[in-house]
């Protein structure tokens, strides 16, 4: 913990831009008994890409679902802390209202509507909009321009498309709601490295051209830190380290634990285990 603290103090919040999303010290409990998040705080600057990193079960998905208010459908609730989007408390909004105000989540494992065609999937994303058919049609073309592959497969049932196409479909569907911010959960899951690269390139382009802010949860630390500008590392429900992406990449412990590199070159698996046992995050 001391190390974590020192790193953040060395690098004072290098996000001078106003934050679009701020999560303050939230605690999440499932089923009234299982404490999953033990006080997580994070900020996403306007127009930023922020990565939420950590191993399985660290609480990345829970954090995203707490923000998008999908927790209640899984018997979870935010018991402490607050979540603000554009300076407004959003903890009590329904997912429907939240999407209307500009936050949309792309869930882990893609979750396309299998029996709907790709195009129908995209159109469901525009459900909350009321600005007319023309605007929706224009955005459909916009999504197709980012994902030309989807245009080729617009008539196929989503359940029969490949994993990469489904991930594009899920992101495209989220875009159709004209979000200001997308919560992206494990976009790399189950995809070939080349596809992962492509997805992240598109995220970057969307961020630059459409001004969409991203908060992305990833296990693939290496890719995530190359595209994100800022990162938080979660471990068993707490933020243990945060900082600019470059700084995190240089950090010895991140290299050791998340990037599989270390100063002393490759180690044998036995040594790594030994090392891990000796030195742990709090």
């Amino acid at each position: 913990m001391s190390e974590a603290a020192s790193l953040t103090s060395e690098a004072p919040q290098s996000a001078p831009a106003a934050s679009i999303l701020s999560v303050n010290n939230i605690e999440v409990i499932y089923d009234h008994v299982i404490l999953v998040l033990k006080g997580v705080s994070l900020e996403v600057p306007q127009g930023g890409i922020v990565a939420l990193l950590g191993a399985n079960g660290a609480g990345k998905t829970t954090t995203l679902k707490a923000i998008s208010n999908l927790l209640r459908a899984e018997r979870g609730e935010v018991t402490k802390g607050s979540i603000e989007f554009e300076g407004r408390r959003v903890d009590a909004l329904t997912p429907n209202d939240l999407v209307k105000s500009g936050v949309v989540q792309v869930m882990e494992g893609r979750h396309c509507f299998e029996h709907l065609t790709i195009e129908e999937n995209l159109l469901t994303g525009a459900y909350t909009r009321s600005d007319g058919r023309g605007a929706v049609q224009a955005d459909l073309e916009m999504v197709y321009s980012y994902f030309p592959r989807l245009k080729e497969r617009r008539g196929s049932m989503a359940g029969y498309t490949s994993g990469g196409e489904q991930q594009m479909c899920a992101i495209g569907r989220a875009l159709m709601s004209r979000p200001k911010m997308i919560l992206l959960d494990e976009p790399s899951m189950g995809l070939a490295p080349q596809l992962v690269e492509g997805i992240f390139e598109t995220v970057k382009r969307l961020n630059e051209a459409e001004g969409v802010s991203f908060l992305l949860a990833e296990q693939n630390t290496n890719v995530a830190l190359r595209y994100a500008r800022y990162g938080y590392i979660l471990e068993s429900g707490r933020v243990v380290l945060d900082g600019d992406a470059e700084k995190l990449r240089e950090n010895e412990d991140v290299k050791e634990f998340y990037l599989g590199l270390s100063a002393s070159g490759r180690k044998s698996y036995r040594d790594v285990k030994h090392y891990k046992r000796r030195k742990r995050w709090l």
């Binding site: 329904t94 939240l98 792309v106 979750h111 509507f113 709907l116 159109l123 459900y127």
Partner: peptide, 20 residues
């Protein structure tokens, strides 16, 4: 109608795109 079919396929995903 499309939203109805979407809900039929996947409740969670329907919620996540803002279908009430």
């Amino acid at each position: 109608g499309r939203a109805l079919r979407a809900v039929a396929d996947d409740h969670q995903a329907a919620l996540s795109v803002g279908i009430p």
